[in-house]
């Protein structure tokens, strides 16, 4: 199949960048979107042009590395699908497809479609962990977890930290990512000791990184390749309020 691509090209962080048009004549409907970019890059390399830089790693939809906005939607138009798992059979022969990097001030463009998402790492470092004795790991069944809570923790833990929620949010907020981590750890007994300090520290780091506030439009949950539900943001808000209250009690 023939596809027309409009791709964001930006040489480095300081370059202004612009959309460039490319044609790929020999794409197959069975290719993934990243394979389409591979084919384009082979063509560009043989023509002596700089290949399009893009992030990718596992190519099986679980690492969260592939980050691009395809036809205006993070990870493209298919629901619950990462870019690497998006296949060209969902497009029509002759389609024009726009490809842009995730747009957020906290995700600066490194080159072309590659953005720096270390702001997410800083949020995780601020509180997205549990304290556990290492070296003498407890028996896996030592701490029983109610089924409902285990299920909800698992749903939230499906977050791969790709940043699609930020890319989709009209306010550039990472609230869905935050909410997923707060819910994932907060639903489990192992997450209780740091429950209050976690939410306070992660929210503070989120704001310090320059992410915007949530307006509950739901664009994030729609764009999320792992279908993290919007109510994790409500959980985040509730935990934050409870943490502020308990901090006041103890002070």
């Amino acid at each position: 199949m023939r596809l027309h691509l409009k791709v964001w090209r930006q040489h480095d962080a300081d370059d202004r960048g612009a959309m460039r048009s490319y044609d790929v004549d020999d794409a197959s409907p069975d290719m993934s979107f990243l394979e389409l970019l591979d084919v384009l890059n082979e063509k560009l390399t043989t023509e002596g042009e700089e290949p399009v830089a893009f992030d990718h790693d596992c190519r099986e939809g679980i690492c969260g590395a592939c980050s691009m906005v395809i036809d205006g939607q993070p990870h493209g138009p298919e629901k619950a699908t990462t870019t690497c798992q998006l296949h060209l059979r969902h497009f029509r022969d002759g389609d024009t497809i726009t490809v842009e990097p995730f747009r957020a001030g906290s995700f600066p463009v490194v080159k072309d479609l590659v953005v720096d998402r270390s702001a997410f790492d800083r949020i995780i470092a601020a509180g997205g962990y549990v304290s556990a004795p290492t070296g003498s790991a407890p028996d896996a069944h030592a701490v029983p977890v109610p089924k409902d809570q285990a299920d909800r923790a698992f749903t939230a833990a499906a977050c791969i930290g790709c940043g699609a929620c930020v890319a989709a949010c009209p306010n550039g907020s990472a609230s869905l990512f935050l909410g997923a981590k707060i819910t994932h750890l907060g639903e489990l007994p192992q997450g209780q000791p740091e429950r209050d300090s976690r939410v306070l520290a992660m929210v503070a780091e989120h704001d310090a990184a320059g992410f915007g506030g949530c307006t509950n439009t739901g664009e994030c949950a729609d764009a999320c390749p792992k279908e993290i539900p919007l109510d994790v943001i409500s959980q985040l808000n509730r935990d934050y309020l409870a943490a502020r209250r308990s901090r006041r009690r103890s002070a």
Partner: peptide
């Protein structure tokens, strides 16, 4: 304050991004 933060959080706009989920009400707040 929140609108200014939202604006600052996306200094470079998308060239092509149609709204998909947010209701008309949410977009016009």
């Amino acid at each position: 304050v929140l609108a200014r933060r939202a604006r600052a959080a996306r200094p470079v706009r998308y060239t092509h991004r149609p709204p998909v989920q947010g209701s008309y009400a949410a977009r016009t707040m």
